[in-house]
Amino acid sequence: MAKTLGAVPRPINWRTLPPGDVEHELLELNAWVDWLRHTYGLPAQVVPPMWHRHPELLWELSALRQHWLFCFDPQAKGNQALAWHHDFAIARERLRDWVTISGTRLDRDRATRITEWPGGEAEDWEAPDTTERTVTNRTEDFLAFVEEQVLARRAEQNATIREITNLEWREQP
């Protein structure tokens, strides 16, 4: 944790991070969440093992981490630690709500159910598979998740590069 203190905390937009940053930020967040749950004795009803598989939990925990980095920065004002603990109490309630909505538990997990809007979904949208799965090896799953995210970002990045390149070729005289 000491090496993260002193860095300029910034909001993380998980939708736009390039592949290398996604990997780095996920690994850092995972280490921080592990520290958080051990330090504060958080039950799975607040931080379940498969939090990384649920965007609502990933965004909430990420925001909480960035807030912690800001409040515990060596340059922070003396009352920031108290402010963080106040906000942490509120965030724990939100985390409980997210866990309830998502359906993830200590020993089993399923994708968060998304209510399909009649005539309101993109043509290529597919509802997530909400089959429950037993949680057997959380670390192995997390590392597979990181790899999936990096590969997906690389594919997005490559598609964007191809699109730009094709546009440039079409604009050639």
Rank of each mutant, 00 (worst) to 15 (best):
R94Q: 00
A44Q: 02
A122S: 08
D97N: 02
W84F: 06
E126A: 12
R92T: 01
E163N: 14
A111Y: 02
F88Y: 00
E148W: 07
L151G: 13
P128W: 01
R65A: 06
R154V: 11
R94T: 01
L42D: 05
H86L: 00
V46M: 11
T39G: 08
A111T: 10
R138N: 04
R108K: 03
F88R: 03
E60V: 05
L61I: 07
T115V: 12
R113G: 15
V146P: 05
W32I: 06
M1L: 14
Q45C: 11
R113E: 07
N137L: 01
T139H: 01
E28Q: 15
L151S: 15
T104R: 05
T130N: 13
A83E: 09
E156D: 11
E156K: 13
F70C: 12
L57K: 08
T131W: 00
F142D: 01
E123I: 07
P11H: 04
F145E: 09
E168I: 11
R113P: 09
T16P: 03
F145M: 12
R108H: 02
R108S: 09
L167N: 13
A155R: 14
G78E: 07
T160K: 13
R105Q: 05
W125H: 06
V46D: 10
V150F: 09
H67W: 01
I114D: 04
A152S: 14
Q66I: 03
V33Y: 02
A144H: 10
P9W: 01
E148C: 15
R138C: 06
N79G: 10
E147G: 13
R65L: 03
L57E: 05
T165C: 13
P55R: 13
R15W: 00
A89H: 01
H24N: 14
I90V: 03
Q80M: 13
A111I: 05
E171R: 12
H54R: 15
T165V: 14
R94W: 00
D129R: 08
D124L: 02
T16G: 09
R108P: 01
R10I: 05
R105D: 02
W68C: 09
L167M: 14
W98Q: 02
T160V: 10
L17Q: 10
N166Y: 00
L143N: 10
D107L: 05
T165M: 13
R133W: 03
W169Y: 06
T130Y: 04
D129W: 04
F145P: 04
C71H: 08
T139V: 07
M50R: 12
